[in-house]
Design a protein around this nucleic acid. Sequence first.
RNA 1: UCCCCAGUAGCUCAGUUGGCAGAGCGGGUGGCUGUUAACCACCAUGUCCGCGGUUCGAGUCCGUGCUGGGGAGCCA
Length: 456
Amino acid sequence: MKREKIYQLLKELSPSDNVLIKGWLRTRRDSKNFSFLEVNDGSCLKNIQIIADSALDNYTEITSLTIGSAVCIRGSLVKSQGKGQTLEIQAQSIEIISLAPESYPLQKKRHTDEFLRTIAHLRPRTNKYGAMFRIRSELSYAIHKFFRDKAFQYIHTPIITGSDCEGAGEMFRVTTLKPDQKIKNDCRKDFFGQETNLTVSGQLSAEMFALALGDVYTFGPTFRAENSNTSRHVAEFWMVEPEMAFCDLEGDMDLAEEMTKFLTMHILDNCAEDIQLFAKFVDKKLMATLETIIAGSFLKLPYSDAIDILNKSGKKFEHEVKFGNDLQTEHERYLAEQYFKKPVIIYNYPKDIKPFYMRMNDDGITVAAMDVLVPGIGEIIGGSQREERPEVLAERMNELGQFPEDYWWYIDSRKYGTVPHSGFGLGFERMLMLLTGVKNIRDVIPFPRTPGSIEF
RNA sequence: UCCCCAGUAGCUCAGUUGGCAGAGCGGGUGGCUGUUAACCACCAUGUCCGCGGUUCGAGUCCGUGCUGGGGAGCCA
């Protein structure tokens, strides 16, 4: 007999004989002549109720089953005589695969996220984290579906990289040298013969492929060695980076908006039950937030206008609002949460606060950069039109103290058939936070890596 | 890295002016019941985060370290 998944059985409308399920016991309630077992196999949020009659030959063992124990149940799917479920399984046999000791840390009650983080290996067995990681899986699929439907090619850009100055923060060093050899600091003797790091972005590689395959994207792990201790940062996270040839900043912003909406709708359509858990127990305003994302269009606002709005707001900000300064978290939150109350795209930032590869605007002051800000999280997407003019690129690299010889292949792409092109990076975990209302990034990734914490 | 808050039973937390260590849940035992985070009764549970200090006496006050959380910077 073939094992059936519980999500399939719960979709059934009529009784049937000979079903086989395997899963873990979530709770047990004993009655006079039988016991109610609730079993979950991770295929969906709901448990299935099992009726274990006292006539079963191992009934004594069944009534001492503990939470977390693994069981294999054969029986018939029948109409439930109780309230709360339409169908249940009348067990013909219950095989105990393994018995969990009473020290099993997960109890039949709500645990705090902080406690569950200390047992990250067990937390996917809870309703909330089970739902989270089913949504995470579905969101990954949705990303591929979005791009595939638009004929984007999926590129596997390198995890290990030799470029050490991509301008996106501190990097993790990759080496095969022993600690005492490392002190000599001679990279020529190292595995790759030069300084090597984990990637902080696949962008530069993706650009090369956009200039060959047209529309491409990457979706993979990214590493930042920043010592940042916030609810929005982890050292290892996943990033989605589309890159499009023959595309300007306007097209870039449009794609960012379209993608955010598509992903939101896809999850609402395909993970309704799991999302409902978050709407009910995690963030009461979740559905309203998700509505604002799919309903109207995102607001597009030049950086200079954002500065004006902030200055005229009459609000006292901790950090000075001045053209040329980067927008601080408090400014971004004010714009997205209080002033517009919906996603905002800010574009055309001053060149001095942005990296060399962003395209210089005609004003000579700003670059074609854009950030998508969403209520509750802040920046979820950062992107730009890339500088495709070789002479302007060289000037910018010089201005920002970059060595052209380190980027010879990048510069080469502007030499041969250069075209306007654009792209952006979406923080996959931040998207999950937006979709679930979860406030800490450590709770949307299976085993979070943060400064001083790599237990699992 | 900086600022603020917290650390007491397996979990969530209370603990008065510095004076015998507590509750709910979970666990164990028994009972009741087509039950729904079942219910009722009884039982057991402790390095009060570590180290040092003040005091007749510290869970409580002081110093310090560690861990966790919130915020800031950096960013996705």
